[in-house]
């Protein structure tokens, strides 16, 4: 049945099919094979370096653990409800305690924590970098003044910022009933510090390279400052701003994992570090799953930004990749 149907394809369709699907699949298969063979050659103190099969095994383990943890949570809450209902039945004035479930965060919980943290840092960075970028892009003098500072701050590693950020957050964020965890803020601020530079620089360049004719149009029309920025400069700079934002988000994601590992902040980085410290025979496989997950999430973040860019950008003819 299927065979007779595929015969409907023309030769050209075949070659498109092969190019778009078969070639990448072959590459992936080759990669997995190479990984499997070379991993089997390496013996570590935690056993053999896991190949694709072992990693897949650990991935399904992690899914099972996640499901089990969720069930545990549901039954905990049910038990608590029952207990409280019984208590209230006996004595309507009894003080019932409702405790949140405090089980160990699963792998998937850690992914969401990381995503939430990276977005917090990224959004804070964008909110700072885009306006500063616009203002510096508009004035050559300002650009020249700020440029050395930006160039100096840009290459600083997140690991260098981390102790300072940790100390500052502990010193400044003092509250009896904190809305956010300190660790969450530390990670988010570290991400922010590291990922605002590409957006800032690209915005400034985008703004300063607006077509001179368009600036002349705004002069002839006597557009006010705000209208000029809003109607002419910002739309012209949107492609560059998005290039910056995409770079920023991928840097932010890389930075976050490192920050979480070093600072023991919840998230994927901590998961990797915990598994490393744990040192069971499964650890390497579980770390490998995390590594792959980090890659997939990073890729999806970039695709997401690309989709957003395509939606926002006026220039649909430009090929974005």
């Amino acid at each position: 049945m299927k065979l007779s149907r595929t015969k409907v394809f023309t030769d050209e369709q075949y070659s498109v099919l092969i190019r778009t699907y078969i070639f990448p699949l072959i590459a992936v298969a080759l990669f997995l094979g190479l990984w499997g063979i070379s991993a089997s050659q390496v013996q570590t103190s935690l056993g053999q370096l896991p190949g694709p099969t072992a990693v897949f095994q650990q991935a399904s383990n992690l899914v099972d653990e996640h499901i089990a943890a969720r069930e545990k949570e549901v039954s905990f809450l049910e038990r608590q409800e029952k207990r409280n209902a019984a208590k209230l039945e006996k004595d309507p004035d009894a003080v019932v305690k409702i405790r949140p479930y405090t089980g160990k965060a699963t792998f998937f919980d850690q992914i969401f924590t990381s995503l939430f943290t990276v977005f917090t840092g990224f959004i804070m960075a964008s909110l700072i970098a885009i306006p500063i970028g616009i203002i510096t892009g508009l004035s050559n003098d300002l650009y020249r003044s700020i440029n050395p500072i930006v160039q100096l701050l840009k290459p600083i590693s997140p690991l260098a910022w981390l102790p300072i950020v940790t100390m500052v957050v502990s010193a400044v964020y003092v509250s009896d009933d904190p809305m956010f965890d300190k660790s969450y803020l530390t990670s988010a601020f570290t991400v922010m510090l590291c990922c605002m530079w590409p957006t800032l620089i690209n915005t400034a360049v985008g703004v300063s390279t607006v077509d001179k004719d368009l600036i002349n149009v705004s002069k002839v029309l006597r557009l006010g400052w705000f209208t000029k920025v809003y109607k002419i400069i910002l739309p012209s700079a949107v492609p560059m701003i998005f290039t910056g934002l995409r770079l920023s988000l991928s840097i932010g994601w890389m930075v976050l994992i490192a920050a979480e590992m070093l600072a023991q902040n919840p998230g994927l980085g901590k998961f990797v570090w915990d598994e490393f410290q744990n040192g069971s025979s499964n650890s390497l496989g579980r770390i490998m799953v995390a590594v792959i997950a980090i890659g997939i999430v990073g890729y999806m973040l970039d695709r997401g930004m690309l989709m957003l860019q395509k939606k926002v950008s006026w220039d649909k003819s430009v090929v974005l990749r």
């Binding site: 077509d211 004719d213 368009l214 002349n216 149009v217 002069k219 002839v220 029309l221 006597r222 109607k231 002419i232 739309p235 006026w314 220039d315």
Partner: peptide, 19 residues
């Protein structure tokens, strides 16, 4: 002494806002 709409300019490369 300054540009203004009473002296409208048609530029060589149309200079329309592409968006």
């Amino acid at each position: 002494d300054e540009p203004g709409p009473e002296r409208a300019v048609v530029f060589q490369n149309h200079s329309l806002l592409p968006w």
